[in-house]
């Protein structure tokens, strides 16, 4: 059954006098991967940071328009409640350095003071790590520090940490830009696998990555969505000339 998870309506974002996003419209349904692609500085990262309101950490920002998560306006929710429902994975793997692998996965519960029984936590950790395709590599080292893992493993640990909260949607902010090709391939495989159960929004400046893993692609340029549609269509018959030029490497 298809249902709309995220809907962005006429959304604009400003930093000071500078307009970063211009009247963006976008929507995505459950268990789909939507790629936001565009040259650096086009506003794609700003857009996903506006979805879980992480942009509010930087003073001077202002937004207009609406974003709905499962028909609830995210700008009318408490940010801390909203962010528990939206998972986020960052460019640079950022496991908590003082915590073990186990504690990293369960961090969303522990840090929020959400009490769970030991056996519940064990199963959440195991399930999340399995979903993040990391379980087999770390199951004997759950109490080692997360920072001992390789970069790609750390990133999958961060994905597991986000999945443990059972998010409505997972935001991936260029999750492979700090990783080597092998780890990148593993993360991409993981995204394709996760698609069965999870809705994802993937920011990438890698055209090939968008083509490989996403169902829908939005091409963002200078703060505007130039084109939004099924990935296979956009990559074979782009409607807009700028999309075509970007895809063929004329700019970006």
């Amino acid at each position: 059954m298809e249902s709309t998870i995220l809907r962005v309506e006429g959304f604009s974002a400003f930093f000071g006098a500078h307009q970063i996003l211009k009247e963006v419209n976008l929507s995505t349904s459950n268990n789909l991967v939507t790629a936001l692609m565009g040259p650096s500085g086009c506003g794609k990262t700003t857009l996903i940071r506006c979805i879980n309101r992480m942009h509010e950490l930087i003073p001077g920002g202002k937004v207009s328009g609406n974003i709905f998560l499962k028909e609830k306006n995210v700008y009318e929710m408490e940010p801390i409640i909203l962010r528990r429902q939206i998972g986020m994975v960052f460019q640079k793997p950022n496991p908590f350095p003082t915590m073990s692998i186990y504690d990293n996965v369960i961090a969303g519960y522990k840090l929020n003071g959400i009490k769970r029984s030991k056996s519940d936590m064990d199963s959440i950790v195991e399930e999340s790590l399995k979903n993040a395709a990391l379980w087999n590599e770390v199951k004997d080292a759950l109490h080692r520090k997360g920072t001992f893992l390789s970069g790609g493993q750390q990133q999958r640990l961060c994905i597991a940490r986000a999945l443990a909260m059972n998010p409505e949607i997972l935001l991936l902010d260029e999750p492979t830009s700090a990783l080597d090709p092998r780890s990148t391939a593993q993360i991409e495989e993981l995204i394709v696998e996760l698609k069965k159960t999870t809705t994802m929004l993937l920011v990438t400046h890698n055209i090939a990555q968008a083509a490989r893993v996403s169902d829908y692609t939005a091409f963002i340029y200078l703060g505007e969505i130039i084109e939004f549609g099924p990935t296979d269509k956009m990559f074979t018959v782009p409607k807009d000339k700028r999309t075509e030029e970007y895809l063929t490497g004329k700019f970006g």
């Binding site: 950490l57 962010r83 939206i86 496991p95 908590f96 969303g108 929020n112 940490r161």
Partner: peptide, 8 residues
């Protein structure tokens, strides 16, 4: 950021 994004 990692912590805040978890809703902490």
């Amino acid at each position: 950021e990692a912590s805040l994004a978890l809703g902490v």
